[in-house]
Amino acid sequence: MEVKELNFVVNGKPYKVDVRTNWTLAQVLREKLGLLGTKVGCGEGECGACTVLMNGETVTSCLVLAVQAEGSEITTIEGLASADKLHPVQQAFIDAGAIQCGYCTPGMVMSAVALLNRYPDPTDEQIRYGLNGNLCRCTGYQKIFEAVRLASKRMRGEA
């Protein structure tokens, strides 16, 4: 049973933890760090519920071995909001009614944040393609699209 020391930064805090080499990043976040906001919906990289930012880019943390995260910076859903304020994407998801059961929400929000980092004023097409790695079964996506447009407007100071 091989164990390695993993040094990485999660939500701005440095961590040094011993992890088994066959653990995934999702497992370490959830079971070692107690960051249960990262959900595991399929474990096969198909549903996107476990999406986190790794060095600023979205990845499905169920397909990343924890050891692959050595030296990386990870942002999970818990790390988006500041002490007194939600991230504009989070706020927009609430306001637009883009959340129902909420199980896809953490991953969806992370993808939306990454999308708006790349395209601050995205086209409908860019939104649709930018989120297609995150399955949602409740909403039919319409209110998620609205939320992304709302967040974009607010982040650009238009609303």
Partner: peptide, 21 residues
């Protein structure tokens, strides 16, 4: 009227404990 879900705050910040958590 249109009311945002009252449990959306916890869901959108990862605070909600689901059964598999």
């Amino acid at each position: 009227t249109k009311q945002p879900y009252i449990d959306a705050y916890d869901k959108v910040t990862g605070r909600t404990t689901y059964i598999s958590d």
